[in-house]
């Protein structure tokens, strides 16, 4: 007899499908990186290797900038990627509470490589525990799109009409919006956490003094921590009943 409850949870196929919009959003970003790296006189294989190993848009641009600036201290590179993508620690911690507890260490180590903001944004829309097969399904198209987008950017700097690439700049943000609005409609606490984040983010980003000392990466972390701490104090979630 098949366990219908387990089968009902989305698996590999649904994951593949849900990865498509993410893959779409990655094309122009990877493309833009391919163009930028080629302009910085990176050879194709090096650009592709960088994309394949780092798999982070904001991080890759930051590192490319440092290389172009001729930075030689390795620690600066490590610190930069840490600061730019520090939010991943928070997101992965939050993720750890949502994924199937039976997912093995090896599976977690493998999935960890492909874990991105956008994947996270899509995956947490699942109700209940998220299955490993769903997560791996989701990683396929975005990663391929990242590799292909980078190569296309390197080879054909002018193949994608700039107007389309520019318009697609909104895709990641549209995805974040599509992730946070529906739960905010149903839950007052989530709504207020979002409102607090909006206010904090605008205040911090638009204060020249603060913007002068803090990078965008730190500002995201500060907003997220402060808004979530206030949310946790004001609206502690109900303790979930133990899974039987």
């Amino acid at each position: 007899m098949e366990n219908t409850e387990v089968n009902a949870a989305p698996g590999f196929k649904e994951g593949l499908k849900d990865g498509i919009p993410i893959a779409l959003g990655y094309l122009p970003i990877a493309f833009a990186f391919g163009v930028a790296a080629t302009k910085a006189r990176f050879l194709l294989w090096l650009t592709e290797l960088m994309g394949a190993l780092l798999y982070t848009g904001s991080g890759q641009f930051a590192i490319l900038n440092l290389i172009q600036g001729g930075e030689t201290v390795l620690f600066t590179y490590a610190l930069t990627i840490f600061v730019v993508n520090c939010r991943y620690i928070l997101l992965s911690l939050s993720f750890s509470q949502r994924i199937d507890p039976n997912m093995s260490t090896l599976q977690r180590m493998l999935f960890g490589f492909f874990n991105t903001d956008e994947l996270f944004a899509v995956a947490i829309q699942q109700k209940g525990k998220i299955k490993a097969s769903y997560l791996f399904g989701m990683t396929v198209f975005p990663y391929i799109s990242w590799l292909v987008g980078t190569i296309v950017g390197c080879l054909f700097t002018n193949i994608m009409p700039m107007s389309v690439a520019v318009a697609m700049g909104i895709v990641p943000f549209a995805m974040y919006i599509a992730t946070i609005i529906p739960p905010a409609r149903k839950s007052k606490p989530i709504f207020w956490v979002i409102v607090m984040s909006v206010i904090l983010s605008i205040v911090l980003e638009c204060t020249p003094f603060i913007r002068g000392i803090l990078s965008a990466g730190w500002i995201i972390i500060i907003c997220a921590v402060v808004a979530s701490v206030i949310g946790a104090i004001m609206f502690p979630i109900d303790e979930e009943e133990d899974d039987k």
């Binding site: 939010r87 928070l90 997101l91 911690l93 939050s94 509470q97 903001d117 996270f120 944004a121 947490i124 943000f173 974040y176 992730t179 946070i180 739960p183 905010a184 606490p189 989530i190 956490v193 979002i194 607090m196 984040s197 909006v198 904090l200 983010s201 500002i219 995201i220 907003c223 997220a224 921590v225 808004a227 979530s228 701490v229 949310g231 946790a232 609206f235 502690p236 979630i237």
Partner: peptide, 14 residues
Amino acid sequence: SFLFYVPYAVLTSM
């Protein structure tokens, strides 16, 4: 509770 609210706060401030 903190980790429950983190994704919404992170995605909003991004």
